[in-house]
């Protein structure tokens, strides 16, 4: 209801609800599609001195649709000894977690689905739900590679939940709120030594947290160098091994949509969210520009995520755990400490 006040019309509840459903679909699919086309197809290809898809549409831009069409046509194979019901449910759980992540994301002063006091807290909680989907997928496939992949994923996601939360705590302390809108506002209205042109994006003060958050994001998304749950040269795409057709597509969309969601979180927490630096427009204008600004920032963060993905080899499982517990968590804790001291001092 609130999100629609900008148009100056009162809509019925069901109309608002259906608009929201449309909006969240757009919010999930658009970054996911953009990531796949821009980064997976094109950027990766250029980095690897090749062109990437070129046939479907101008510069292969329709390749994505072709891929979706291909997956929809494929047979949906279920292994004989699989737990059929759980096998079917698993991708939806992963996808649901991704969709729910966007429910707390602010896209503009009035453009959001919900504006909860505990927005970031809920987002982190919801992101951990996807682990269950992955575990179920790994277990229900009745495949050892899948099981290993699922267990690796669970261990990894649990381990990296912690540095991620701790990295966010620094931001929360500085902003003084758990509300994502409040965090955006704190960055937008803040100033650096009296200069308020670009506000105070927490990237500048919380760069350590940003680094930890990005690394943890990389791990949460199971992207290289933390992709051992889906390592194709070891355990043959892990928990996704037995999936095909539509259900594989759901996992695939889930992977990139979650990348989009985490990039959006990072953009909101550290890059100022939907707010535009240097200019100060009224709320109504920002309601339209804000989503685009956020989208641009999502692409920036996505670029970093995928750049690392295409460059690095992957860690080993124990090295990954050691990295989380020995480096990331202490660094994040020190960051919290320093932030607290500075917060109290100034």
């Amino acid at each position: 209801m609130i999100s629609l006040s900008v148009l100056g019309v009162e809509l019925a509840y069901w109309q608002v609800t259906s608009l929201r459903v449309l909006g969240v679909l757009l919010a999930v699919v658009l970054p996911a599609g953009a990531f796949v086309y821009l980064f997976l197809f094109k950027m990766m290809s250029f980095m690897q001195s090749r062109l990437g898809p070129m046939e479907a549409g101008p510069f292969g831009s329709m390749q994505l649709l072709a891929e979706v069409g291909k997956f929809l046509q494929k047979e949906d194979i279920v292994p004989e000894r699989a737990d059929r019901r759980l096998f079917f449910i698993a991708p939806y759980i992963v996808l649901a977690s991704t969709f729910l992540l966007f429910s707390v994301m602010p896209f503009g002063p009035d453009v959001y689905f919900t504006n909860l006091d505990t927005g970031i807290f809920l987002a982190l909680g919801l992101s951990s739900v996807s682990v269950i989907g992955i575990l179920i997928a790994g277990w229900a496939s009745a495949n050892k590679y899948s099981l290993i992949g699922g267990i690796r994923a669970a261990g990894q996601l649990i381990a990296y939940e912690l540095p991620m939360v701790l990295a966010v705590v620094g931001v929360v302390i500085q902003a003084g709120t758990l509300n994502l809108q409040g965090i955006v506002a704190a960055q937008h209205q803040g100033e650096i030594f009296g200069f308020s042109g670009i506000g105070n994006p927490f990237l500048l003060t919380q760069f350590v947290a940003f680094g930890v958050f990005l690394v943890a994001t990389q791990a949460e998304l199971t992207q290289t160098p933390f992709d051992m749950p889906v390592a194709e040269s070891e355990i043959v795409t892990g928990y996704m091994t037995e999936y095909s057709g539509l259900r594989f597509l759901l996992f695939f969309i889930g992977e990139f949509a979650t990348a989009g969601a985490f990039a959006a979180l990072a953009a909101t927490l550290f890059l100022g969210g939907w707010a535009l630096p240097f200019v100060s427009l009224d709320d109504n204008a920002m309601n339209f520009i804000g989503p685009l600004v956020l989208f641009a920032k999502i692409l920036m963060v996505g670029f970093l995520i995928f750049w690392a993905r295409f460059t690095f080899p992957r860690f080993r499982e124990d090295q990954l755990q050691a990295f989380a517990w020995k480096y990331l968590i202490p660094i994040a804790l020190i960051n919290i400490l320093v932030t607290m001291i500075l917060k109290v001092a100034f």
Binding site: M47, Q48, S49, T224, M228, S233, F310, F312, R314
Partner: peptide
């Protein structure tokens, strides 16, 4: 080797 260890890009350089 790089591909086995999870890095995709060097394989393409090698093929190139």
């Amino acid at each position: 080797l790089a591909l086995q260890l999870g890095a995709q890009t060097p394989a393409f350089y090698a093929f190139r």
